[in-house]
Nucleic acid binder design. Structure first.
Lengths: 350, 350
DNA sequence: GGGTAATATTGAATCGGTTCATATATTTCA
DNA sequence: TGAAATATATGAACCGATTCAATATTACCC
């Protein structure tokens, strides 16, 4: 059974191809008789409707938004925070009747895998990746609209995010507010290049990891309010993996004066930290309080339930897509974050 | 700045359009001089590379696999089980260098939203939805390859799944094996139409919910081994939401002889059930043991950690895509499931 | 140097539709 | 009744590339 095209249907129905096209796209402009004629012919020939690709070639739109990320698509789906972003974006796409796809490993440009910044079908991009100039450049070359998430205030890029500095300050306040003064920080990525490890209080970092820096700044600002200087806040750079967080916990707790509280820059880090602390025999929060960042749902089920500062991740994804589609107008959208107090933080020295 | 096409680049470079095309697609077939000539012209004109849509029109492939589901895309991402499927599918797509997209609300055909079975760009479908004839018919019409997940043994449909009956039997055995004889079942959807509620032991159901039926059958078979008949296994149909599960728990526990153990057909149901039981003052597992189904990661963090029968969800998604792409050959692939014993099940009458 | 094989380049056909200016038929209205 | 307005249908142009048979060029060998 050979492939059947609109042209064939039109021929069999005895109408022009243009009319046949209208039957499928603007049925109201075609008389009912002709319409059924065409539909019948289509049914008889087994015509499956206009082929999406061809339709889109002409109309210029593909009906697809791409979420661009540094990680692999599978990782974004698995990650507690990335997943919420994704769900929000999906909701907005649903509402607009368009599709969503993930373009992963954005940074790996050389290989030009089949589904990359340059080759992916899309009407626009949502950028969920570190703000590397190179990526921006590649996205720009596509000549498609794009919106950044957590992207910072880069000139000319519209983005949605939260005020990370303020949010981090509030997280720190949950600790200092109940008397903690020996506080360790488990940071997200600050410098590229695998490393990890202790962070020098005076170190300066590239603009790539703006989010991390803002959170660090927020922690320090709030700590300063109770007289703690950066060097009083032992800080360890981790990644999302178990091993680096375990190292961080070990480094913090093996200090001469181990912290009585830990601020983790993400809930994922916090959750690993809690399990590491427990494994090392520390009670949470009896010996060590822990505050996370993000507000992922799993935090509520943790034992003990995790205190955190919740950011509206779904709404971020949703807003990004809406702005992209023009459904919502905004330049740099700053959404609110708020502290959720649960049991992983307790007053000091109980 | 007007749009610039390959044609323009070719003209400026002084070569034919065919050669220009080759520069981008088969660079090795073109002499270095010409290549740089074309590339220079492209750079000068601001040509951003071949437009994906057009490229795909001609080549016939779009480089995209679509996961088709009944639910909304956002729900699949949020759901603990669906998400794992998705992650596995994403991994396989990554490996193959193609993209992944979700087509949600598959059943809503009438509306023909912009991204539906008929309109989505895709080279093939992975079906994660209830096995309704109508949907199969619509997918078939696309004339694209497809693979079902948990789809049952429908003739002519290649699918990947587990042996639900055997797996459910093993779940039941975790209960009967430690002495439980008063066992309640919280079922997934058995009959469409919102309802929910107690299930008549003799009721027959449509083939649509095959997975549910197989699990029920497995439970009953194993229970029969210790002399329990279907009418001895009070069964309640729930959906994924909190309310219906709460109703189910209430119905079970308010019986004259409340169960000492509950078999839940999914971990999501089990997790809600546990929280409901605790809210009603029952100890888990002291008063009531609970076994789930699926093996979602969250189950391990639950208090108490959930006993369940784990199915290889990621691998299901991965295998489905691989079969779809021809990377892996198989007809009906049956993957293994295995019991994970944790603390939510305890011997009876402790 | 001539003939053949190998390699590069061209140009036109093609993918499968949508769109729009134009032609034709039908209504409306004074 | 006739002119203007409105509703339908047509056919060709076009979307932006890829592909492939045909041709031009270069290389190779005796």
């Amino acid at each position: 059974m050979a492939k059947v095209r609109l042209k064939d249907v039109a021929a069999v129905a005895g109408v022009s191809q243009g009319t046949a096209s209208n039957v499928f796209n603007r049925p109201e402009t075609v008389t009912p008789e002709l319409r059924t004629l065409v539909l019948d012919a289509a049914a008889r020939l087994g015509y499956t409707g206009p082929q999406p690709v061809a339709r889109m070639l002409r109309s210029g739109k593909v009906g697809l938004v791409a979420l661009l990320t540094d990680e692999s698509a599978a990782d974004v789906i698995s990650d507690a925070y990335g997943r919420r972003l994704l769900a929000g974006a999906a909701r907005a796409c649903d509402a607009a009747g368009i599709g969503l796809t993930i373009v992963g490993d954005a940074a790996k440009g050389e290989t030009r895998s089949g589904w990359s910044v340059e080759t992916a079908l899309a009407d626009g991009f949502v950028l969920y990746c570190f703000a590397e100039d190179e990526i921006f450049e590649r996205v720009r070359r596509r000549n498609l609209p794009f919106v950044g998430i957590d992207g910072g205030r880069r000139a000319g890029v519209v983005s949605v995010g939260i005020d990370d500095e303020v949010a981090a300050a509030e997280a720190m306040k949950t600790l200092t507010g109940v008397g903690h003064r020996r506080i360790g920080i488990l940071s997200m990525e600050l410098s590229g290049e695998g490393g990890g490890g202790p962070v020098d209080p005076d170190e300066q970092f590239s603009a790539t990891y703006e989010t991390t820096q803002l959170r660090l700044k927020g922690y320090r600002r709030e700590a300063a309010a109770v007289g703690l200087e950066p060097q009083d806040l032992p800080t360890f750079q981790t990644f999302k993996d178990e091993a680096s967080v375990a190292n961080g916990v070990a480094w913090l707790m093996d200090r001469p004066e181990p912290p009585t509280a830990i601020a983790a820059m993400s809930d994922v880090i916090a959750m690993i930290a809690v399990s590491q602390l427990k494994a090392r025999g520390y009670g949470v929060p009896d010996d060590v309080s822990v505050v996370g960042f993000d507000g992922v749902p799993e935090g509520a089920y943790l034992d003990p339930p995790l205190t955190t500062v919740a950011q509206p991740a779904e709404e971020k994804g949703e807003a990004a897509v809406e702005i992209l589609l023009g459904t919502r107008v905004s330049q740099n959208l700053v959404l609110p974050a708020k502290v959720i107090s649960r049991r992983s933080v307790a007053p000091k020295g109980r």
